Computed example of a mutant assay.
Amino acid sequence: MICFPNAKINLGLNIVSKRDDGYHNLETVFYPIMIKDALEIIISERQEQDSFIESGLKTGVSSENNLVMKALKLMRAHYEIPFLDVHLLKKIPFGAGIGGGSADAAFMLKLLRNKFSLDATDAQLSALAAQLGADCPFFIYNRPCFASGIGEVLENVDLSLEGYYLMLIKPDINVATKDAFALINPAQPEVSLKEIIKKPVSEWKDLMINDFEKSIFAKHPAIEQIKLKLYALGAVYASMSGSGSSVYAIFNKKTDLKHHFADCYVWEQE
C-alpha cells in the first residue's frame, strides 16, 4: 500500500510565551501544499525484521532515527503489526520549515491504520503523532488549521487559496532551531491570525508576520533577499515558512519565475 505525504506552509507564526518545559507556545495557521513524498509499506515475506529503504533526497538520518520508522515502532506498541518492508521516496526538501519529516510520520500512522484496518480514530492517531513531533498532528487531518500550544492544538479554519498561485523557494541554507529562537521576545500578537486570515490576501503583507524572520534574516540575509525578490516579482504575499529556510509566495496568477532562483530548490503550483 502506498501514500503520498505532502508538505505545509505557515501562514503567520507568532511566538506567544515561554513554557516551563523549555518549549514555546505559538500561534500559526498550517496550510497544506502539494509537494509530496511517496511512502510504501509491504508485508515482509521473511517476517524476521523490518527493512527500510530511502531514495530521492538524502537526509543522512539512520533508519532507526527516521520518523517513519519511529512512527511504525510507536504504532506497534499499541497494535499488532507484522514486519514490514518500508520504502520512502523523498522529494520534500528537509530543513525547509515545511514539515516533510512530520508529514512522513503522520502519513505512516494513517497508512498502517488503513493497511491493517486498525480501530484508531483520527483523534487517537493525532495523540500518537504528538509524541513524534509538534506539527505531526496537523498532518493527520491535513486541512487548514489554526494551531496553538507548541503546534499540536488544532482548530479548523475556513480558508482556501484557490484561485491564487503558490511558489516556494528553498536556498541551500540550513537553519538551526536554536538560531531561530535566538532573538525571539515572546508576546501576544495585537491581532489574532484567525482574524487576519479572514481579510483579503492583499492585506496580509502589513498584518501577518513570522516572528522567526527577524533572527533568521539577521544571520542569513540571503533568505530575506529571496522574500524581497518575490515581492519585486509581483507576489501579493511572501513569508518564510516555519523557522526556514524556505520562503513561499502567493501570486494572483500563474507565473514562471524559476529562472530567477537558479541556485535554489523551486516548487511552483501546477
Rank of each mutant, 00 (worst) to 15 (best):
S126Y: 02
I98D: 04
E190D: 13
G97L: 11
Y79S: 08
F83M: 10
F83G: 11
A238N: 01
F146C: 05
A71E: 07
G56T: 03
E224N: 14
Y164V: 10
P144Q: 07
K90S: 09
P186K: 03
L88I: 10
K178D: 08
K258M: 09
L118W: 13
G99V: 03
Y31T: 09
K254W: 09
L39E: 12
L125F: 11
G149K: 00
V266I: 13
G149T: 00
D158T: 15
G100D: 00
V191N: 08
L132T: 06
D211H: 10
M167K: 15
V29S: 10
M240E: 02
D211C: 00
F181M: 01
Q269L: 08
G100L: 06
L11A: 08
K254E: 14
E203N: 14
S63Q: 13
T59R: 14
G234N: 06
V191C: 04
M108Q: 08
P171H: 03
N185R: 12
A120L: 07
A232F: 07
N185Y: 08
L57E: 08
I150A: 02
V175Q: 00
D256I: 07
L228Y: 12
K18Y: 00
A238R: 06
V236M: 10
I9T: 03
S117W: 08
S126M: 06
F138D: 12
T121S: 15
L118M: 12
G133P: 09
M108R: 07
S192W: 04
I184W: 05
S117L: 14
F251E: 09
D158M: 14
D122V: 08
A103I: 03
Q225K: 15
F139A: 06
A120H: 07
G149Q: 01
R19S: 00
E270C: 09
N66P: 04
T121I: 06
I150Y: 00
P189I: 01
F261Y: 04
G56Q: 07
F94N: 14
I226T: 09
L112Y: 10
V236H: 11
A134N: 08
I169Q: 09
S148N: 05
L57K: 12
I15K: 01
T28I: 06
S246Y: 07
G97F: 06
Y237V: 00
S246C: 04
L132M: 11
P200F: 03
V153D: 02
I41Y: 14
Y231I: 00
H24P: 02
Q47Y: 13
K198M: 09
D211V: 00
P82W: 13
A130C: 04
Y141K: 14
F138S: 12
